[in-house]
Amino acid sequence: MASPGSVRQTQRRFAFRVMTPIMIYLMIFSLLPLIWAVILGFFDYSPARVGGTLFGLGESNPFIGIRNYVDLFSDSQPATVFRKSVSNTFLFTFLILPLNLAITLPLAIIIERSHTRVKGFFRAVYFLPTVTSAVAVALIWGAIYNPQAGLLSEMIRSIGLTPPKAWLSDPQAFVMGIPLAMFALIVAHLWQDFGYNLVIFIAALQGIPQNLRDAARVDGANEQQMFWYVTLPLLQPTMLFVSVMTILSSLQMFILAQVMTRGGPREQTQTILMSIYQNAFRYQNMGWAAAMSFILFGIIMVFTLLQFRFLRSDWEY
């Protein structure tokens, strides 16, 4: 029989044989792109020009310091569109978050109280949109929003009201100061996305121990008091988690806007990721687009770190 020392040696060798290719792979497909992305942000880089020997940087793709970042604040048309996309994305995110929570939390509570068999059925149906292709969702909602032949306008007409003349393409249409097209996208987004938070809330509600509710009931709490003083405080960690996940996915909104409105009308629904995509791959202005993606990365990082901070907070029951 082999000695314990040689057994350990074989194991170590096996571990290294597996981990070495994985680490090399990550260097090439993860670490290198990350560093490269940061560096690109300081170059006037376009893949259309040959440039220097090292990654095509230098010569016709010169180092320009922080000019890409400075240019984001210039008066040029693409810079204006980018800034518009930043404010649009924040608007999207902070409209989606409260609307999402206002739908998913009450719905989760209702479902959780329902009969087990009914519960499974509703949960399954409500989750269905989340697994469907976002491109198909965008096309379906595009048809629903069709001003003449679409479902929504017709429903509004059938109850005797006048629908707006276009849901997705009228730059003059605003609701409470927010572009109508943006609202239309938000509704489509909520429809596709609410199932995630819903099932997470249901699971969290099921995790609240019955004895806590019983104790509150013995103390004479009614249903409302139980919700505000027992359920809601215990849901706080879940609320934070769900909020951060919703914020992160909304900040990276792309497909619905790209397919349904192309960012229009008049860039009213242009998102940050659309700006990055257009500047990098349509205008081949990759240095500048890399600077944009670093900005988005920074925004995302702030929320990710917030999440880590909150999730570490101790909570037990």
């Binding site: 990550l26 090439i28 497909f29 993860s30 290198l32 792109p33 990350l34 490269w36 992305a37 690109l40 893949p47 990654f55 095509g56 992160l248 990276q252 990721l273 990055i276 990098a280 791959f281 990759m286 687009a289 890399a290 993606s293 670093f294 988005l296 990365f297 995302i300 990082m301 990710t304």
Partner: peptide, 16 residues
């Protein structure tokens, strides 16, 4: 890797 959003690396990944 979980913390790195895809949009951050997609441009260099394309060049690779």
């Amino acid at each position: 890797q979980i913390m790195i959003p895809f949009q951050m690396i997609m441009i260099p990944l394309y060049l690779i």
